[in-house]
Amino acid sequence: MNTLVIVLSLLAGAYLVAVLEAWLATGRFRLAAPAWAAVALLGRESIVPRTPDRIFFETAPVLLLVVALLVSAVLPLSPGLIIADMTTGALFVNAVLAYVPVALLMAGWGPNGGYALVGGWRFLGQTIAYSMLIVMPITAVAMRAESLLTTAVVTSQGAVWNIVYQPLGFVLFFTAAMAVSFLPPFDLPTAGGELAGGVEAEYTGVRLGVFRLGRMVLVVSLAAVTTVFYLGGWMGPVLPPWAWSAIKILAVSSTMLLTGHYLPRIREAHLLAWCWKLGIPLALLNIFIVGVMVLIWP
């Protein structure tokens, strides 16, 4: 039952995020826009490129969707509303996210096209940039909770949320989460003005629909991870816990989309340089500060 509720919640969240994305793109708020877009995609011919690597080409969109759904398996939306409360939950999130670059590399290699190929390799470089900025802030979150259980991470924020307790970690994780979900300004693998869609460029019809759905679900899943790790998860006054989770997840997703709308795409070399020369030292500093604070003010 929990699985069904969480999967449906994710799909509903992905739909609302798609509405917001369409609103930002066109300037018109239309609640039915994603539904019409989906119908248009389903009605369109699903073209297969001339000489694809068929297994990679067919698997990549599905893999992206599966990865996005798996991330949410260990995230509690309210007490008891979780698919699997694993003792290694926080680590599981990181492990599952390692398959996002796999999906994108397959989507880049599979169609045997120039734009897709460059897009796939670009994401590999992007992975090298953001990976440590996912792992290291999660380490600091687990340090405070003294557990890798995601439910323990939420309850550890009873007195003060992690966004206040470790703001540096939040900024780093939020930025890295945008890079994982290749949202602007980190949309290097899709880059409309540079690669005409990149890893998406050779997909049409149902396959493109699945790919885009996977991306939207990934955005919502990462917003949920941010909520659980930094915004106190389901905690909040008056409203029921699930409502607080929904509000926070939508707020984080919207912030991710809005941030990208007002910034130009980052250069790949700069992304790598900033992540390694600035991001990783800051993440280490965050771990040190949290370590000291856990001793002084658990």
Partner: peptide, 8 residues
Amino acid sequence: MTVEHAHA
């Protein structure tokens, strides 16, 4: 646009 780059 297709590029005969690789698989063969």
